[in-house]
Write a protein that binds this DNA or RNA. Structure first.
Lengths: 345, 345
DNA sequence: AGTTAGCACTCAAAACCAAAGAGTGCTAAA
DNA sequence: TTTAGCACTCTTTGGTTTTGAGTGCTAACT
């Protein structure tokens, strides 16, 4: 869509003013913000044309204009200039991560909280995906005569642990055969390879040990499943209430939607294929509950591989120019931290 | 405070009706709910006296009555009959805990979610306190030449892990001396004994090993700190919006308050000294933000020792008769599960 | 005594109405 | 193409009235 330079200027100003104030902007109040050597009538004509193009709309006939989703889209794609993430903000972000959080889950949770505080939006983050990760190590730590804590560590540094209880004593020889099985069949395997068929053939091939070892082996498999499954974390829910007005009265519905991890996880994973930062505006979102919200998502990479996402959810009149760079900055930082902490040396 | 039988009946009915409808109850509507062979005027007289006693109040002169905090208190202490937790509810609770969650943190988080869903309130739960718990086991699992994952397990089954990185290679002899130090100075110690002075004397006594071992030892100490510190978890925040009306317009403030763990944690720990289930009504709560809320808390025991709490937060017109037993039932169940899973055999 | 019918009174909430004001679209002149 | 002017629209605001549930009090009744 080609727009005259003046139309672009007007559209941009309307979007930014509306984002700032939340009030529909009329021709007069627009002129007082913008120094243009034209009259309000001229602006009105331009605004009428922008409405005809579907970029602006009116809540009712005698009100000012607000951007449509398409209006925001045009703004984000063509008009917006990314604000730099300024020094003080950077410091706040970095201060947000206390000294060395090494657990990736904790780190991501923290990242979500920091982002929520910073942006005044709800924030979501996913733990590093187990896709492509392999099992680096498995340990069985006896805690009783018949119980052991199974600890699994992945190549991405995720740790999962679980208590396994057997009907037989877990003496040294049992543990030894456990480690043999682990070494032969688990260590080095991709997490995604540990599935039901794999387990079935493994069990079938185990012979007599199966009764003593089964609970332990099952625990390992459970942990692998857990580790491959990325977890979605949510922070800053209360911020949604701040935007209450702009969400209509559906704040509750939105909160309920965000509580359910699955749709969110899908949302995050389908977003940002290739792109740097993905912005979905209002009805561009695939879920009914997000029709009045905008979502800004970016990926973080560990060692160059896309491993998870961090994003924020706010009203469609979210401050794109400032927040898109913030999200980007944070995800890059998280990626660096995780890469650094878990680089094999 | 002594009340005539009729006053008790009236007070009880008002409380229950108001809890059900949320509307101030007047003399007429009360009579239609209650079969009493007296006229509305008589009821009015009684209500006026109950108001004089501070048990009822009126939002404005020409409205019905609602219970004061003292009114609720009298109801809870004297009038209420606990409803039995019926079979179907029990099944829902038990179904809420999928098969064997062995990680106590996960279990408590789940318990909070279950309770929130069940009661329609926000729910809080604390992880088992490390008070009185000792270090059962420490493992160092090398993950690179200079990094190791330190895993600490407590006597209450809590697992904490963390990556430690050293400036020196972590070969077998380093690990051996690490295990020696651990065995001598950590295993069997109470978590609370691992504090700064203890670490200082330990480091002072270590001699030459200190440079290679310090990062590992520090990690152990960090983990002990983490483990002794109970974590507060919050679930069902969105339920608060359902009660929005009854909280006034301060839903946001309440949510913000609940986000901060410290005051909550204090609240839970000071509550229920000795008692079975503790109920704090409105201004009985020590925090301004909870003045319009009621809190129902109960403790769970592991192996007979009080280890943590689970509770719900709702409007003062919460359904005490049903929810108090539910909270009790759930905490008992959680205690049983945790005791069972982590009993030393 | 305790109870009840009756009645005047109160007050929030709903309904109604009027005026204000911001903004528009259109027309006609520059 | 731009602009001044104007009639029109529709929300917002504020004030007034009506309604209705509920009260407290008094006087009669049991």
């Amino acid at each position: 869509m080609e727009l005259s330079e003046r139309k672009q200027k007007i559209l941009g100003a309307i979007v930014e003013l509306y984002i700032k104030t939340g009030e529909p902007v009329g021709s007069k109040s627009l002129l007082s913000e913008l120094d243009m050597s034209v009259s309000s009538a001229t602006v009105r004509n331009e605004m009428a044309e922008l409405s005809a193009l579907g970029l602006l709309e009116q809540p009712h006939t005698s009100a000012g204009r607000i951007p449509t989703n398409e209006g925001y889209r045009y703004y984000v794609d063509n008009l917006m200039v990314d604000r730099q993430v300024d020094e003080s903000l950077r410091r706040r972000i970095e201060a947000g991560f206390g000294s060395g959080i090494s657990d990736p889950e904790k780190l991501l949770e923290r990242a979500g909280e920091v982002l929520a505080d910073l942006t005044g939006c709800a924030a979501v983050s996913t733990t590093p995906s187990g896709e492509g990760a392999y099992i680096r190590r498995v340990e069985a730590v006896p805690v009783g005569t018949r119980t052991a804590m199974i600890v699994l560590m992945t190549s991405t540094g995720v740790i999962k642990s679980k208590v396994a209880r057997s009907d037989f004593d877990l003496n040294a020889s049992v543990l030894e055969s456990f480690y043999n099985v682990v070494k032969a069949s688990f260590v080095g395997k991709l997490l995604s390879e540990v599935d039901t068929p794999m387990m079935q053939t493994l069990v079938a091939s185990m012979g007599g040990d199966v009764f003593t070892l089964l609970p332990l082996i099952t625990a390992v498999s459970d942990l692998a499943q857990e580790a491959v499954h990325t977890e979605v974390m949510l922070g800053g829910q209360s911020n949604i209430l701040h935007h209450n007005n702009y969400y209509g009265n559906t704040a509750y519905e939105l909160l309920e939607f965000l509580r359910r991890g699955e749709p969110l996880s899908k949302l995050l994973s389908t977003a940002t294929e290739g792109k740097d930062v993905d912005v979905k505006i209002g009805s561009e979102n695939p879920y009914r509950q997000l029709m009045k919200s905008s979502v800004i998502v970016s990926n973080y990479n560990i060692d160059g591989n896309r491993r998870g996402s961090i994003g924020i959810i706010g009203p469609t009149r979210i401050d794109y120019a400032n927040l898109i760079p913030s999200v980007k900055y944070l995800t890059d930082l998280v990626g660096e931290l995780l890469t650094q902490t878990f680089k094999e040396e």
